[in-house]
């Protein structure tokens, strides 16, 4: 990326209604494959945005670049008004260093398709790990916070179990508690129900619904559960080839899709169910 392109991006977003998350002309390539194609996407504070789309459309990449698990090739991502992928050197944006990344990452939490709980720690220890070692909380504070969250996700009675003793749905609920224990401003859910048996999907979607109704978290979710997406999202974005093909309220997008590709995708999904 050249300095000219940097110069065209503001050092920080200011004014009223600054979005919590803002992708500005973000491009991500794997070799010659373009996964995100000059993507623009804003998510307001407290908004729940669900990303749907065919595989390879870049939907998971949105979450991964936001969590800084993957870097981007072009453009800038802002979180809470500040650049995430870049930082200001006083006059222009330069690629972020580790220190800046660590500062910014504290605003974001993520849940994964395969949970990724730490197998050598109990449910409670999983939740306490970040608060104690990253936020520097005392063990007592971290324990109280973690126990409360485990209660919230209905896992208080399993807090001393290791992940290998828990079902997929239980592991995912602990993973949600673990992410929330860091008090992020933005939560990312990456296909959190895809690896679950059908009968336990409800216990995880139930927790997410509760989060939406009781907390003012900004959330981005990638899912294949269209019914669930329709129920809880403020906005649904249909991704196609690294861009937003169409987006709107759940009723607009599911009830009356305008674009042909959206219609094709939705009818294909419906047939599969």
């Amino acid at each position: 990326m050249t300095d000219e392109t940097h110069a065209s991006f503001p050092l920080r977003l200011e004014g009223a209604n600054v979005p919590m998350v803002s992708f500005r002309k973000v491009t991500k390539r794997y070799g010659s494959l373009v996964v995100l194609d000059s993507l623009d996407l804003d998510v307001a504070e407290g908004e729940m945005v669900t990303i749907i789309g065919p595989s390879g459309s870049g939907k998971t990449t949105v979450l991964r670049t936001l969590m800084t698990l993957d870097s981007i090739n072009d453009g800038v991502i802002y979180v809470d008004g500040e650049p995430l992928t870049h930082m200001s050197d006083g006059t222009k944006l330069v690629p972020a260093n580790q220190r800046h990344l660590r500062k910014m990452r504290s605003k974001i939490g993520m849940c994964f398709q395969h949970f990724h709980l730490f197998p050598h720690m109990t449910a409670l220890e999983n939740c306490m790990e970040g608060p104690v070692n990253v936020l520097g909380l005392s063990k007592k504070e971290a324990r109280e916070r973690s126990e409360e969250l485990l209660r919230m996700v209905g896992m208080a009675d399993k807090r001393d179990q290791h992940p290998s003793r828990l079902s997929g749905g239980q592991q995912q609920r602990v993973a949600i508690a673990r992410a929330l224990a860091m008090r992020p401003k933005v939560m990312l859910f990456d296909e959190v129900t895809s690896a679950l048996d059908p009968e336990v999907i409800g216990e995880v979607t139930g927790v997410i619904k509760k989060l939406v109704s009781e907390h003012n978290l900004t959330m981005l979710m990638v899912t294949h559960q269209m019914g669930f997406a329709r129920q809880i999202s403020d906005r649904v974005s249909f991704f196609y080839k690294g861009r937003i093909e169409e987006q709107g309220t759940p009723d607009e997008l599911f009830g009356d899709p305008k674009k042909e590709r959206t219609q094709q995708f939705l009818s294909a999904v419906r047939e599969a169910v």
């Binding site: 660590r102 993520m110 730490f118 790990e129 970040g130 990253v134 992410a179």
Partner: peptide, 25 residues
């Protein structure tokens, strides 16, 4: 690889990720 990513998502430093998450496993 997911263990690295989960530790990163908890904003752990490189040393913490290695010492607390990766090495024990």
């Amino acid at each position: 690889r997911g263990q690295w990513e989960a530790a990163l998502a908890l904003n752990m430093s490189g040393v913490q990720r290695m010492r607390r998450i990766i090495l024990p496993q």
